[in-house]
């Protein structure tokens, strides 16, 4: 964020790969996915579908959500099986 015009690659080129992680998009979010570990069956549908790779998985289990990058699209909550519904979308205003 602090690089001057003299330090940046010219033409707005991004000259290294895998750096989307450095750009935090979490503040775009209106609805926050809240994960309930008790209900979750760890089918990992949410992890597969998340377009921002924001579902944190450890040892084959969903352990949380990366709120620094989650844009709040709600795909995880929708794809969570009907019988489970372990992810609920909550208005961000409730967390302010």
């Amino acid at each position: 964020m602090t690089k001057t015009w003299k330090e940046l690659p010219e033409g707005g080129l991004i000259t290294e790969s895998g750096n989307a992680h450095q750009y935090e998009t979490g503040d775009w979010r209106n609805l926050r996915p809240v994960h309930d570990r008790e209900k979750c069956i760890n089918c990992l549908f949410c992890w597969i579908y998340c377009p921002d790779s924001a579902i944190i998985v450890k040892d084959g289990k969903v352990v949380g959500i990366d709120y620094a990058h989650c844009k709040g699209c709600g795909i995880c909550a929708r794809e969570c099986p009907d019988k489970v519904k372990a992810i609920k979308m909550v208005d961000e205003s409730e967390y302010e």
Binding site: M1, K3, W5, L8, E10, G11, G12, L13, I14, T15
Partner: peptide, 24 residues
């Protein structure tokens, strides 16, 4: 040496890139 060209440049970088073009 993979690159991305034509990326999104918001309030945080656009001005710097325009300044580079002015220098060119």
């Amino acid at each position: 040496k993979p690159i991305t060209a034509g990326g999104l440049d918001f309030t945080d970088y656009y001005f710097e890139h325009r300044r580079q073009t002015a220098q060119a």
